[in-house]
Design a protein around this nucleic acid. Structure first.
Lengths: 360, 360
DNA sequence: CTGAAAGCGCTAACAA
DNA sequence: TTGTTAGCGCTTTCAG
């Protein structure tokens, strides 16, 4: 065994205080000390207009001294407002959702909300359970990105009936009228493809994701329309449909396209991971990226700058998406559910890197 | 009284329901409907031993029908238990914390806890504020990974005084006795360095992080001890201290070491990002990895499998760390703060890849 | 086996 | 300007 543990517990100036288990100070405690009523104290602390500056002073002074901490549970119960915001994501590791959540937490805390995070693990059963959990926690709103296995809407109706604002982001169900923050995935597909065409590519392949999810469907449509606009033929055999988009499925997809009698000279992939896999396969075949075959991915993952060549990719504005979702929630809360559902659409940015920049 | 209950059982295929804003069903509502007392209903739902199976049946039946949702705020207020667990991390994007949080959320939800996430943004001022927020939210415990700018402990004492379990993970302050879940960073440094020595490297450089953080200090110590054990000289000019560890600081550090009269033949870096930067620089200098210069990073980031050559790295058991932190919290809650502070230490795993595997 | 009543800590009518 | 009172929804004694 290595001798390293000792280092972990070296100098100790005894900080852990188990002296006195103090119950948190309550309004009642303060009131007693001051010879005031609880409501008076409450008002003083909430800076109510009709309380003398002098008493406010006194109260706030003592509150600080006695280390008073308001009890949000109690206030929430009374006011019917928990100041809690629920978030459901398929998973939390992975850059996209992590950054979206960063944006959510930032915007929410600015508005005085705490954020409760749930993961559905891409499983609709979990997702249903998450909804229950969040409703029990009395959240004032729910932000959701759907699990991959969600095909119906029933469990969200309960939320709507309660009049709790519900905002979807990124992943929504096609054919539902809901409030949502979305990336313009169509534009992402269109721009990427047009960029490749501009680089002189003529046989552009596509790695497509599951088409019941709007994001993948739209990326594909953008791709198709760009081809059409520039008078290029759409060849269905150049499109590979992947159920999930990973490094490995990207490899397989690339293998498949390289078998074709006439191989593609570019790929627009709906995922960065898949395109990273493709890169490996292409090089194994002795082809040059980007000159023999150009690559564009989607999501602008961190690793796109670490491969060689670096990968061109579409940035999804993750952090803005989180912020926008919170803003939409705050707005819905004002409107008390009277407005029709709306979509906030963010525009993607094409980050051009070496994998699609041909020598001219 | 609202006549709205009936609507709840209506078949509604309207997707956006703005028909009727129904107040959530309460215990009182159920009690009235059943001709029972609230306490009876409460007991039935909590499966209390001294209630007839028959009534339990009846109650639970109606509860489901009326879509009853327990109010955790109210229960929490009454019982003094919120079933909320607070988490403070420096930031949430970046694989390490994201995965730790995944582990936390998983373990916590299994124990019936909801997780409130806060980001300190590496700022001690934020961190203090996060503590206030979480205390107000009446969390039953707090899991923290310190911000980079935290050098004192004052804001945590308040938490201890309240008797709220406090568990640190990964980043702790040296010289404090606290409950913590840690990686054996020392072993990580030791194993990495020994591995490089085993590959025939003799001048091994090190990218060191800020030494007031235990993690970086221990990694460096492991490195030093491994050198010593194998009779290699420690050269201080082979160690570069980086304030933050990014791709760019890694590049700079590598530049610096390549200027030396006698350049290193390996690097053990405290960070993957930095070692990825180093890789780029090394290749610009026309050197071969790993034969001219071998590389080992730390954290086992996803991109370590995407560079060429792939990067050897130390896996930190992120998900286990999250789980372990929750378990420790649950245990402390049982013990009511009578036990001395303890450290749970997880063993790292060296994931050997091409960047450190020399041809034999 | 079940009911009545008290109260968690806070806010907001209504009084004074 | 302050106090009184009631109650948010739930659990939990204490009595039946």
């Amino acid at each position: 065994m290595l001798p390293g543990f000792l280092l972990l517990t070296d100098t100790t100036n005894l900080i852990l205080g188990k002296e006195k288990e103090t119950r948190p100070t309550s309004l009642t405690d303060l009131a007693k000390q001051l010879g005031l009523s609880v409501s008076g104290v409450s008002r003083a602390l909430n800076n109510d207009s009709r309380i003398s500056a002098a008493t406010k002073q006194r109260v706030q002074e003592l509150a600080r001294q006695m280390n008073y901490q308001p009890n949000h549970l109690a206030a929430g119960l009374r006011k019917g407002k928990s100041k809690l915001l629920g978030v459901i994501v398929p998973y939390i590791d992975g850059r996209f959702f992590a950054v979206v959540i960063k944006g959510i937490e930032l915007a929410a805390s600015q508005a005085g909300f705490n954020v409760i995070i749930c993961q559905s693990n891409e499983d609709v059963v979990h997702e249903r359970q998450n909804i229950e959990t969040l409703l029990s926690a009395q959240v004032e709103g729910i932000l959701v990105s759907l699990s991959r296995s969600t095909h119906d809407f029933a469990h969200f109706e309960k939320v709507q009936q309660r009049g709790i604002p519900l905002v979807f982001f990124d992943r929504i169900l096609l054919g539902t009228e809901v409030n949502a923050v979305l990336l313009n995935d169509y534009a992402g597909g269109f721009l990427s493809t047009e960029h490749l065409i501009g680089q002189g590519c003529r046989r552009i392949g596509h790695f497509a994701g599951p088409q019941h999810l709007g994001i993948y469907k739209h990326r594909r449509q953008g791709y198709l329309d760009a081809l059409q606009k520039h008078g290029l033929l759409v060849a269905e055999d150049l499109i590979v449909y992947c159920d999930i988009m990973t490094l490995d499925t990207g490899k397989q997809a690339m293998q498949q396209l390289l078998q074709l009698p006439e191989r593609p000279d570019a790929i627009f992939s709906s995922s960065d991971a898949a395109v990273a896999g493709a890169l490996q396969v292409v090089e194994e075949h002795g082809l040059q990226v980007p000159n023999d075959l150009a690559l564009v991915g989607f999501s602008n993952e961190m690793f796109t700058s670490l491969t060689k060549p670096m990968l061109t990719s579409v940035d999804q504005r993750c952090e803005q998406m989180g912020e926008a979702a919170v803003r939409l929630f705050l707005q819905l809360r004002q409107e008390k559910g009277s407005a029709p559902p709306q979509h906030v659409v963010l525009e993607p940015e094409l980050c051009v890197r070496a994998s699609s920049l041909r020598a001219t």
